[in-house]
Amino acid sequence: MDSITHTLFGLTLYGAVNKTKMTAKEKRALLLTTVAGSQIPDIDVISAWWDSTGRYQMWHRGITHSLFLVPVWAGVIAGVARVFFKVKGWLWFLIALLAVFIHDTSDIFNAWGTGYFEPVSTSRITFGMIPIVDLVFWAFMAAGFLYVKYGRGRWPSYRIYRLVWALMILHVGVQTAQGMTILQQSKDNYEQVALSADFVPGVFTIIGKKEGLVTLSKGSLWTGFETVAELESREDANLDTLFANNPQAKTLVEWAPFVVIVDDGKRIGVYDPRFYRNGQSFLAEYFTTKQ
């Protein structure tokens, strides 16, 4: 997910905790714990500062997003809360654990994916069931905030935010059920297939590759799917020159489920078709062979 969504997750998690018996200091510790836990896996963005080998694509959302590192991050955050706010007990560790787990797990549901099981496996886990920026999440969280602020309901605020979490989990479940059904129906038509969720709930793009042809089909279970693009991939191209002159290209091939290969005599390159929009993909790497 994007940084704004992760921050909102942290604030909504803060709202979902019953703070009736908490002191002001404990509430501040809780806010630190939920927001920091919802953001800390993305600390890997600083690796771009020293990347000289073109590996940033693998480092971002890599080991810092690993399931095995969740308790480590939680321990760090709980330790900071203990030092700065003098709080005691396991609550801070458990809340941080949940916040980091939500961050890492929510990221595997969009097309970017994460190194969820690093260092055991370097494979990117990606489902493509939820867009990177999901406006449904935003709508649920905004509705909960507005109800708490302006509503006159009998429920305490923490129960409202717990309902928001329940609705968001339900949304993920519905999207995932649809996406898995679509993938199951599509797998016999392609050698390789991936899914990318649209901003509109229930709408997906199927990205299928077969014999050097990548087909993008957009639609839903209810409307059916229509081909929106067909991309030729030069599977016979020699990528050694590309990799030697553009290390990021080799990383992209390793990172993506599959790529489209371009070789038109003037340039050679690869791009991720899941992010293909308006005639190009924003995840692409090229090397010009002829000026």
Rank of each mutant, 00 (worst) to 15 (best):
F101E: 05
Y158L: 09
D104N: 13
I102G: 00
R152P: 08
I130V: 11
W155L: 15
S106E: 02
W155V: 13
M141P: 02
S157N: 10
F117Y: 08
L135Q: 15
K149F: 07
R124F: 08
I108W: 01
Y161L: 05
F137S: 10
S121N: 11
F145P: 00
I130Q: 00
T122G: 14
F127T: 07
K149G: 05
S157C: 08
G115K: 02
D107K: 04
V164H: 02
P119W: 09
G113M: 03
G115M: 04
D107W: 01
W155S: 15
F137I: 13
R159F: 11
L146W: 12
L163F: 12
K149Q: 11
A111P: 05
Y116K: 03
A143P: 04
F145H: 06
P131I: 08
L163R: 09
V100E: 01
I160P: 00
V136T: 13
R154G: 15
L135I: 15
F145A: 11
F101I: 04
P131D: 10
K149M: 11
I132P: 07
F145C: 10
G115F: 00
S121P: 02
A111S: 14
G128R: 01
M141H: 10
Y158I: 06
G151F: 07
Y161R: 04
P131G: 09
D104M: 06
G115C: 08
P131R: 10
T114I: 05
V120W: 04
T105H: 03
W138R: 13
E118I: 09
E118P: 06
I130N: 00
R154V: 13
V100K: 01
A111V: 10
T114Y: 00
P119L: 09
G153A: 12
D104W: 01
F101A: 10
R159D: 11
I132H: 09
N110S: 11
S157H: 07
L135A: 15
F140Y: 07
F137A: 12
W155Q: 15
R154L: 14
M141V: 14
G144I: 03
G128D: 02
S106K: 03
I160L: 03
V136F: 08
N110T: 11
D104I: 05
L146F: 12
L163N: 07
V100S: 00
D104R: 02
I132M: 14
A142R: 11
A111Y: 02
M141W: 13
Y158A: 08
S121T: 06
S123Y: 08
D104V: 09
P156E: 03
P156K: 07
F137M: 14
A143W: 03
A143D: 02
I102K: 00
V120S: 05
S123R: 12
M141S: 13
H103L: 02
G144N: 05
D107G: 04
M141D: 06
P119C: 09
A111C: 12
T122Q: 15
R162M: 13
D107Y: 04
G113P: 02
T122V: 14
Y161V: 05
S121C: 07
D134A: 11
